[in-house]
Each structure stands twice: as C-alpha cells, then as structure tokens.
Computed example of a mutant assay.
Amino acid sequence: MEWIQENINWIFSGIGVSAILGIIGLFTKNHKGKEQMINSGNNSTNIQSGKDVNITLGGKNDGQEK
C-alpha cells in the first residue's frame, strides 16, 4: 500500500495506465477465434460463409455482366 502512495503519479500517468491495462488484458483475453454456428430444419439447404457467397443457378449469370 505504501508503494502505491509513493508512486501514485506514475501509476496514473499514461505509462502506468498502459501497463496496468496490458496486464489485465493478458488475463482476460478471449482465446476463441471467430466461430460460426448454423441451425437448420429438415430438408433445408443452408450456406454459411465468412465472406461473400456468389450463387449461380442453372448456369445463368442472372443478368449480371462480368
């Protein structure tokens, strides 16, 4: 407790706050990556992607020019 009183200016300066937040971040960091989950019913078609999905039906380009 005495150390905190002697170093109160350093603790609440930019360097001290950064160090404290960095230490807290190490212990509270979420180690899970991006996770996707999909629920579907019977006889359903589901498409899930982390990016864009382009679907072409019957070989047509649906009026879009490339």
Rank of each mutant, 00 (worst) to 15 (best):
M1R: 05
E2A: 04
W3Y: 04
I4S: 01
Q5N: 07
N7W: 07
I8F: 13
I8Q: 09
N9A: 03
W10S: 02
W10T: 01
I11G: 00
I11F: 08
S13Y: 10
G14C: 05
G14H: 05
I15T: 14
G16Y: 05
V17Q: 14
V17R: 15
S18H: 06
S18K: 13
A19M: 02
A19P: 01
I20M: 11
I20E: 03
L21G: 00
L21T: 06
G22Y: 02
G22C: 03
I23R: 02
I23W: 03
G25N: 12
L26P: 00
L26H: 07
T28A: 07
T28H: 08
K29Y: 12
N30E: 07
N30P: 01
H31F: 06
K32E: 11
K34F: 06
Q36P: 08
M37E: 14
M37P: 00
S40P: 00
S40E: 02
S40K: 09
S40N: 08
G41N: 09
N42C: 07
N42P: 08
N43Q: 14
T45G: 11
N46M: 10
N46I: 08
N46F: 01
I47F: 12
I47E: 08
Q48R: 13
Q48H: 06
G50E: 14
K51G: 14
K51A: 15
V53K: 05
V53N: 03
I55Y: 00
I55F: 03
I55H: 05
T56W: 13
G59R: 11
G59H: 12
G59D: 10
K60I: 01
K60M: 02
N61I: 10
N61L: 14
D62K: 10
D62Y: 02
E65Y: 10
E65M: 07
E65I: 04
